Computed example of a mutant assay.
Amino acid sequence: MIDIEDLVVRRGTTEVLSGFSARVAPGESVRVAGPNGSGKSTLLRVLAGLTAPDSGRVTIGGRPPADPAVRSVRGYVQEPPPLYEHLTTGEQMEFTAGVWGVRPQEIRERADALGLAERLDVLVGDLSLGQRKKLGHVCATAHEPRLILLDEPFNGLDAAAEDAVRADLARWRSDGRTLVIVSHSDASVAGLVDRTLMTRARTETDA
């Protein structure tokens, strides 16, 4: 599903990703790991179509990441999640349902499993970090995408919410969806991934 060849992404004069290559098969679940500053989140942003490569080739199902056909089958759980702070939690769910053409009740049922049932009338801007993370997880995957990109999906979650997210990942994996998960902890994704892709920080010897 995903083909990456000699990917280079620069920030100013620094190469955040330098010659990264990988292939992820349809239905495969992979973890992306590496030291701080090695481009893990940048890689997800490239796959999400939000950051353009400076060089190299990236395709998803044979199409570039920004292609509209890819957007419809991809979900991106960001860190931090991009939400509308002036909306209530319930309004954010309704807006997301309209964007993806799903029933608001479907989103609310998944949100309930993450402990958000009592926060529907609370402004998104007043939610705690963990609550925003839960809402972002639900909204980013409301359309049940075939490709799901997740950036540190367990950060800031309480134990119950972590279990619920883990159950989502296990269900998606068993459904044959493709998962790309950035996680600093091997233990947190144990049993949920098939293998690990390593990024590395650029050093002076690479110059």
Rank of each mutant, 00 (worst) to 15 (best):
25 A>H: 13
26 P>T: 11
27 G>P: 11
27 G>D: 11
27 G>E: 12
28 E>D: 08
30 V>K: 02
31 R>D: 05
31 R>Q: 15
31 R>F: 04
31 R>T: 05
33 A>K: 01
36 N>P: 14
37 G>L: 03
38 S>H: 01
40 K>E: 01
43 L>Q: 00
43 L>Y: 00
47 L>P: 07
47 L>F: 09
48 A>G: 15
50 L>H: 06
50 L>I: 14
50 L>W: 08
51 T>D: 08
53 P>Q: 09
54 D>A: 10
54 D>L: 01
57 R>W: 00
58 V>F: 03
59 T>H: 03
60 I>H: 04
60 I>N: 02
60 I>E: 06
62 G>V: 08
62 G>N: 07
63 R>L: 15
63 R>E: 12
63 R>A: 14
64 P>D: 04
64 P>K: 05
66 A>P: 00
66 A>K: 04
66 A>R: 13
67 D>R: 02
69 A>S: 14
73 V>M: 12
75 G>K: 04
77 V>Q: 05
78 Q>G: 10
78 Q>F: 07
80 P>Y: 06
80 P>F: 09
81 P>D: 05
81 P>Q: 07
82 P>W: 00
82 P>C: 07
82 P>V: 15
82 P>R: 10
83 L>N: 08
83 L>I: 10
84 Y>C: 14
85 E>S: 14
85 E>Q: 12
86 H>G: 02
87 L>I: 11
87 L>G: 11
90 G>W: 04
90 G>L: 07
91 E>L: 10
91 E>Y: 13
91 E>Q: 15
92 Q>S: 13
93 M>K: 01
93 M>V: 15
93 M>L: 15
93 M>E: 04
94 E>L: 13
94 E>F: 06
96 T>R: 05
96 T>F: 05
96 T>Q: 13
98 G>M: 13
99 V>E: 09
101 G>N: 12
101 G>D: 13
102 V>N: 06
103 R>H: 14
104 P>Y: 05
105 Q>G: 15
105 Q>C: 00
105 Q>P: 00
106 E>Q: 14
107 I>E: 00
108 R>S: 12
110 R>N: 09
111 A>T: 09
112 D>Q: 10
113 A>W: 01
115 G>I: 02
115 G>H: 05
117 A>M: 01
118 E>C: 00
118 E>M: 08
119 R>S: 14
123 L>V: 03
125 G>T: 10
126 D>E: 15
127 L>S: 10
128 S>C: 09
128 S>E: 08
129 L>Y: 09
130 G>C: 12
130 G>Y: 11
131 Q>R: 07
132 R>F: 02
134 K>A: 13
134 K>P: 01
134 K>W: 01
135 L>V: 06
137 H>P: 00
138 V>N: 02
139 C>T: 15
139 C>F: 03
139 C>H: 03
142 A>S: 12
142 A>W: 01
142 A>R: 03
143 H>W: 11
144 E>C: 02
146 R>K: 14
147 L>A: 07
